[in-house]
Design a protein around this nucleic acid. Structure first.
Lengths: 214, 214
DNA sequence: CTTGTGAGTTAACGCCTGTTACGTGAACAC
DNA sequence: GTGTTCACGTAACAGGCGTTAACTCACAAG
């Protein structure tokens, strides 16, 4: 008999998985990336994600990975890239809902916080990535420039002479600190994130300037 | 012959290490903690620090660890504790150099940033620790209350009615975001940290209030 | 000189890992 | 029907890991 009852770590326990038809083998590639992304959610650490674990989650043998990726690192790199792409899309869509920079700013902040707190593991992989994946900064930077643009428009509306880049760095570092700290220390009685976001806008004067009393 | 030329991963390449004399075996315990701390500096991730790697760094066999620690997790937990203790000492000493809360605030901020940027790996272990070490929050909290005290005195000096705890959370989240982001993405052209710290004090109004023009 | 004993070491176990070489079986082309 | 090709699977490798059991060996006490 070729089938045994022994369940090793490599044999999936359920869903014997029909193999994809010839020509659409690239779908497995996508499945592997999704599985890697899901593993990030629970581990929050990229170098504890083994090639075998990803294959196991999809229900495929470890060697099947090599048909679609050069090696372990290549798989992880692509998975991180696709995660960056998700994150960027979320932020850009939130920012594009309105032309009012103040509203867009808050929408972007909310989206940022929601992503970071709902998909904490992935967020950690993106931002506390010590693995040298190569071009680590560029995918995140494109979303950052959207923020700089919004900040620029807010400052202009307020006749505020501050440097938009500097203020954007202030915004991003602060929001990152909030979500990273709250996400990693859930036991601490943090103030609600909405309140913290409000405080950020007030402290950095990124709210519509009140019309002077006439 | 009992000595072979084969260098396995467990045999140290240099310094055959004299064993400690009877009675002072506890010194190896300390050596192991120091070695674990040094590994944190380079890895920044606690669960890639293997028991064997720590033993290797000290120049001792893996099993020697078990004389001083229950198991792998016990070793890591003690190492993290000792790292927390270092960090707390640095902050408290910086804060205790003066009675002026505004000066103490800045000194504490500088010390925080310096620790985080010089010992990035250890800082990451302390604050992005997803391993459930048990009492994860308490050692850091004691240093946090020192901050709350300083903030309280600053607010009092300024007749500022804000909640010291809330403001302290704002301070800490922001500083954490700054050092975490700068530390993990060294390629980005960050503004100087001193400038960012200044901006933090200004934005959160944690500077001596200017005397009203008379 | 004998006898412990403290401070380690050696050998081995079972497991998980990335990676290679090779096999297999179904779908399509002709 | 035959052959090829695509989409995988099987078996095996070498090496790292935590952990256990048993051993060694210098030094101190009596």
């Amino acid at each position: 008999m070729s089938t045994s009852t022994i369940v090793t770590m490599d044999t999936p326990t359920l869903s014997p998985r029909k193999r994809y038809a010839p020509g659409e083998g690239d779908r497995l590639r996508q499945d592997l990336l999704v599985a890697a992304g899901e593993l990030m959610v629970t581990t929050g650490d990229i170098d504890t994600i083994s090639l075998r674990a990803v294959a196991r989650k999809v229900g495929v043998s470890p060697t099947a990975v090599y048909r679609h990726f050069d090696d372990h690192l290549d798989l992880l790199r692509e998975a991180v890239d696709s995660c960056w792409s998700d994150f960027r899309t979320v932020l850009e869509e939130a920012a594009a809902t309105t032309d009012d920079p103040f509203i867009a700013f808050r929408a972007m902040g909310d989206a940022y916080v929601r992503f970071a707190l709902e998909r904490t593991g992935q967020y950690r992989v993106l931002f506390s990535n010590k693995v040298d994946i190569g071009h680590e900064s560029s995918p995140g930077l494109t979303a950052f420039w959207v923020l700089v643009d919004i900040v620029e428009r807010m400052l202009a509306a307020n006749d505020d002479p501050r440097d938009p880049f500097f203020v954007s760095v202030q915004v991003h570092t602060w929001v990152h600190g909030m979500v990273d700290l709250c996400g990693s220390h859930p036991g601490v009685p943090w103030p609600p994130t909405a309140e913290l976001l409000d405080g950020l806008g007030v402290a950095l004067e990124l709210v519509p300037r009140a019309a002077p009393a006439d």
